[in-house]
Amino acid sequence: MSFSFLIRRILGAIPLLFGISLVLFTIIHLAPGGPLDVYADNPSVSPEALEQIREAFGLDRPVPVQYVLWLRSMLVGDWGLSIRTGRPVLDEILTRLGPTMQLGGISMLLSFLVAVPLGIISAARRGSRTDSTVTLAAFAGISLPVFWSALLLQLVFSVWLGWLPSAGMKSIGDGSVSDRLLHLILPVTVLSLATIASWSRYIRSGMVDVLSQDYIRTAYAKGRREGSVILRHALRNAMIPAVTVIAIDFVTIISGAVITETVFAWPGIGRLFVESMNGRDYPMLMGLMMMGSVGVVAANIIADIVYATLDPRIRHG
């Protein structure tokens, strides 16, 4: 894969992102209700005042005009103001990004460190009791709804046992490292469970595929033992099919683990999204969703680069 290919991929993503933004803009404006509905029944806000706010945010203009205005300011780096808080969208997103990165990053790292060995063991001992146990657990992990496992863990470890805090990033008046770590345990566990379950399946199937290849037999014939056959000959090729999934999952979580953040009152992107959705905060929603879209497109391009690093047949065409 060449440098020019990369440039072409990136340039190709631009019209795609325009398309996405148009669709997203249309959809959120099609949704019933609007950002000013919360004031409708408030007697202290006069109809004249409402009209003024509507004009100030351009909400009185036709939707296509609103889109063009939004796009024009977006292109010069102005993400607009949040209708709900009045603060710049970008500032709001950046303050929420830190907590989400922390939660998401730790969860992804943990998932990777657990899913890869699980997938390998499962594949190397396929058909064994270990494999069936891992498989069963993985399917349970994939099919369990996140809100359910989140509420269950919260109930058991916070409400009944009282071992772990049930919500937030830190206790009021505390904020020491150990306090923060305690707050991380439950949301990280919930977020990792489903990811580990799904990634371990991808790694297992990639590994099973690779382990039946002729070159694995060649490696044994050269005198390699099982462990080094797996690490040196199988793993790299077995990771290839999992790359895209891992990249996309990463973006999905970074752009907002909506349910987990809501259940655990985590002040991150996911919760910001829910709050903005409830308030029909159009500029904020557009900002969040565009960030997610750019992330997914970027993840795909990064996945391609990783493919090329793992597989010389792609690298050298």
Binding site: Q213, D214, Y215, R217, T218, A219, Y220, A221, K222, G223, R224, R225, E226, H233, R236, N237, L310, D311, P312, R313
Partner: peptide, 28 residues
């Protein structure tokens, strides 16, 4: 046992296979 066997494989007893297309590791 497999340990002692892997010491012989590749050093005293070697093997080549039918499919030269697939018997080499594509990533090495």
């Amino acid at each position: 046992d497999q340990r002692a066997m892997s010491d012989l494989r590749g050093s005293e007893i070697a093997m080549i296979f039918q499919e030269p297309m697939t018997s080499l590791n594509p990533a090495h």
